[in-house]
Design a protein around this nucleic acid. Sequence first.
DNA 1: GGTTTTACATAGCAACGTTATGTATCAATC
DNA 2: GATTGATACATAACGTTGCTATGTAAAACC
Lengths: 198, 198
Amino acid sequence: MARRSAADAAATRTRILDAARRRFAADGYGRAAARDIAADAGVTVGALFHHFGSKAGLFLAVFEQLVGELNEAAMASFRNAKSSDPLDAMVASFGVALGFAKKPDFHRIVTVDGPVVLGAEQWREIDSRMGLQTVAGGLSMLKDKGRIIDFPTMPLAVLVMGAMNNAGFALARGEPGVDVDTLTQGFRRLIEGLAPRG
Amino acid sequence: MARRSAADAAATRTRILDAARRRFAADGYGRAAARDIAADAGVTVGALFHHFGSKAGLFLAVFEQLVGELNEAAMASFRNAKSSDPLDAMVASFGVALGFAKKPDFHRIVTVDGPVVLGAEQWREIDSRMGLQTVAGGLSMLKDKGRIIDFPTMPLAVLVMGAMNNAGFALARGEPGVDVDTLTQGFRRLIEGLAPRG
DNA sequence: GGTTTTACATAGCAACGTTATGTATCAATC
DNA sequence: GATTGATACATAACGTTGCTATGTAAAACC
């Protein structure tokens, strides 16, 4: 086969991306061979490296696709809950994040392999841009409305986001004695506990 | 060189272990070549595989060494704070965990590469055995003394341990607006917020 | 319609984890 | 204290991997 049209090339790129997502999720980044991914997509490694430059570049593309899906879902949830109580909105987005954390491909690719493959700086930049700032914004809103205590926002956001992330971990791992409802309720109680004391 | 005495063999094992710890911390598991580790230790790969079976086996040995060091420090901290307030003891062990999370080799090897190399099951088993159970025990004690609300322990422990872990992450990454003191204070406030309401 | 650029295939290189084999020494046995 | 077996490595090679240099044919542009 030789050169295809621009539309065909885009389709090839998508097929490689889909195959990589499956392989990375199933085998992990280290054990997923570029040749196998290319074979799954019906091309050779030449096409893969032509489109993505490196195996890490391919991983980054898959990573950003998954993160984008969570972003869209979280923003949609926030729009729906906007008129209601801000604490409800925060708990709702907690539920959305839990839903994604339970998906095996998201967990393996974004949470586990992401920091290793992308490196600390790049991962922090993406994580901070998409998650931490959102959590901090929610906390800031709660603080403005007097629902939580006056305390530096970023450290609180770090703690709260860690609680959210680990809840996702525990769910994905099937930690005994842990389920979505109880985690959500506990999370709500944790935030309510930050209310100013009378 | 040929065979050494049993003591010499143990020394060789230790030298390989030390070299691996440095390489794993500096380059990450993926980029640390077994040949380089062996060369750093003054042996060839044959000795490395003789002692540890595989590269992953060598990583596991380094991993357990680091985790053991944290365990010792945490237990020592707990013994010191035993007579004081249980919430103080919990905050103290939080500080110990933060101290380890700041160490680059611990962060890279245990927190980042650990789940990837060891796999989800083995990492969960170690993490749960050494960390989650301790946190759950502390929360259970606080609950018995009426210091926090009556709520299922494990989900709370998952949330609290996530907060602790992410605090370590944020510190190790140098997250802006975040430092040890404020994190510790916020952590204390988070736990205090779980107090039963009057 | 000629030129350039794009989209791949093919083959090979260098590095890697791992293993098979060899060998010299320690440690126990007789 | 010679023999035997196990131990502690070195050496070299194998299969796989990420990646690249090269080739080529068709699309895109003028």
